[in-house]
Every structure is written in structure tokens, then in C-alpha cells.
């Protein structure tokens, strides 16, 4: 008999200093509407804050938005902290303005998926839903 699955829990937030939250809020709304439990951290989060919240809230994934160009520093720092704090099973994904070269390097470093400008909303929702299957 199938066991009713608990909904997927995702932390959605913005790290770094930039305040461009149009995209991240739309994604938070879309994931919420699709039945995901969304913990939205708000703006100006440090990697430490994000990882602490993610572990406390026992999330399946962290989705981060960065439009300031600080992606190389901040995604790597989040991955490092997840490793240090035993959160390697938490999937890290993100979005923002990320040049192709950086994209490949970040994926190699362990960021599961990165969605660029113009990525369809359902692609992101499907990605998150697919994390449990």
C-alpha cells in the first residue's frame, strides 16, 4: 500500500546584498501553489543563515537567487557549510544572471541545477517535484 508522502520542503531565499526579489518571489509563489512547503527567507541572507535555517527546518532543497554577480563565492560557501554541518543530502539549486563558464563550474562543484533568465516556471516546479522520485 502506498504511504501518503509528506510534501516536499524547500527553502527559497536570496543570499548576498542585492535586492532583486521579483523572480524569487514568483518562484516561491509557484512552488507553494504546486503543493510544496516553501520557507521564504527574505533578502540579504548570509550563507550561514541559509544553511542554519535549512538544517533546522529539515528541508529537502535550498533554492537561491543571486543577481549581483557574487554567485561563485556564495553558492560555493553554501555547499561548504552544508558539508561541514552534515547537510550534504540537501539539494542546492539556484537562479540568476550566471555566465556560461561559471554555470559549468558551479554545477561541477555540486549545485544541482541553475535556472537562467527566461526559464519557464513549470520547469523549475517540475525540477523540485522530481527531487523525491
Amino acid at each position: 500500500m502506498a504511504v501518503a508522502a509528506t510534501p516536499i520542503r524547500v527553502l527559497i531565499g536570496k543570499v548576498g546584498l542585492d535586492g532583486h526579489d521579483r523572480g524569487v518571489k514568483l518562484i516561491a509563489r509557484a512552488l507553494r501553489d504546486a503543493g510544496t512547503e516553501v520557507i521564504y527567507t527574505g533578502l540579504h541572507q548570509t550563507p550561514e543563515q541559509v544553511v542554519n535555517t535549512a538544517i533546522q527546518e529539515d528541508v529537502d532543497a535550498i533554492g537561491l537567487s543571486i543577481l549581483s554577480g557574487a554567485h561563485n563565492t556564495l553558492f560555493r560557501r553554501v555547499l561548504e557549510l552544508l558539508k561541514e554541518q552534515g547537510g550534504e543530502d540537501i539539494v542546492l539549486f539556484g537562479g540568476g544572471i550566471i555566465p556560461d563558464d561559471d554555470l559549468a563550474a558551479l554545477k561541477a562543484a555540486g549545485v544541482r541545477a541553475l535556472f537562467g533568465p527566461g526559464a519557464p516556471m513549470n520547469e523549475i516546479v517540475d525540477f523540485v517535484k522530481g527531487l523525491r522520485s
Binding site: G16, L17, D18, T46, S68, G69, A70, N72, T73, L74
Partner: peptide
């Protein structure tokens, strides 16, 4: 850049990775 817009110096820990980018 973002640190300047947020009123912090380039050597502030929060500025790391953002200096001169935006």
C-alpha cells in the same frame, strides 16, 4: 557596486564576492 549601495566597505565580510561586480 552592491557593498557601496548598502553602505558597507569592501573589506566587510558581507561584501565578500560582491566588490566591483554590479
Amino acid at each position: 557596486d552592491m557593498p557601496t549601495l548598502m553602505g558597507i566597505d569592501a573589506d566587510d565580510p558581507l561584501a565578500h564576492g560582491e566588490v566591483g561586480h554590479c
